[in-house]
Amino acid sequence: MFEARLTSGKILKQLIEALKDLVQEANIDCSDDEISIQAMDNSHVSLVAVSLRSGGFDHFRCDRPLSLGFNATNMGKILKCAGNEDAITLKAEDDGDSLSMVFEGPNQDRIADFGEFARGARGSDSPPGSRREKCWKIDFNFATMRGVGVLVVIFDRKIYELKLMDIDSEQLGIPDTDYKVTIQMPSGEFQRIIRDMQVLGDTLSISCTKEGVKFGVQGDLGTGNVLIRQNAHAEKDEDRVMIEMEEPVELTFALRYLNFFTKATNLGPTVILNMSPDVPIVVEYPIGETGHIKYYLAPKIDE
């Protein structure tokens, strides 16, 4: 049995949005510590790795490790039915073939006063053997106009079932690496640079020197260069640009993939770029205290 409730269900919505253009099918791997996803795009040029730690959920139970294979487009369609303020609960049986997703509106506390009534109202609808104690919590949200004697029933809980599939995904072992360059910058600014650079060409060079980080593109139209300098003392944390460099690094990448990565921009104010010579770049979006989504992209290399 796996069951995990995320008060901020928006994170899940945004996560699936952030990977569904890159990967079609993937496994959600559930363990005691976390839920994680690792998947590559079809051409094996980029990889996305998601981790949400169990401590970031307000309820988390995973009796044994499970791999839940899902179609990202279909999950995205279902998650679109959840409101941005909804809490989302994921549930799966150990040997089941579906993932249950429950969306609850933000005013669930209102039901507490009306438990007795609700149990009665549920009546014979309760499936045989079901735990009535839970039924009223599951199906309705109640509000009342006290003194007037009117009970308003608000249907504020939605339950969807997503069909799961067996996915034989190729997992890659990613070694712990000490990168020569680590750049932290506002995620919105990174998104803007990638978007603007795509107008000019399809290959981006990222060069980090003591001067700063230079993003450059050359195309038929012309060339574009953006220099980002360290700004470690900006008033707001999220406006800071911090550059740690052991040695200068310059790499080139396909803008098409970097553009896919920026779909994660809404997940947090900050993006972290890790680079070393001749290895994939890591583009990481931290998700509060809950986890992260990391993208790996193989560079283009002269032979």
Binding site: H44, V45, E170, L172, G173, V279, Y296, K300
Partner: peptide, 14 residues
């Protein structure tokens, strides 16, 4: 601008 590498050039399958 160089040849696009894939990830298998850098990471091993588990």
């Amino acid at each position: 601008v160089g040849k696009q590498k894939n990830l298998f050039s850098f990471f091993s399958k588990q």
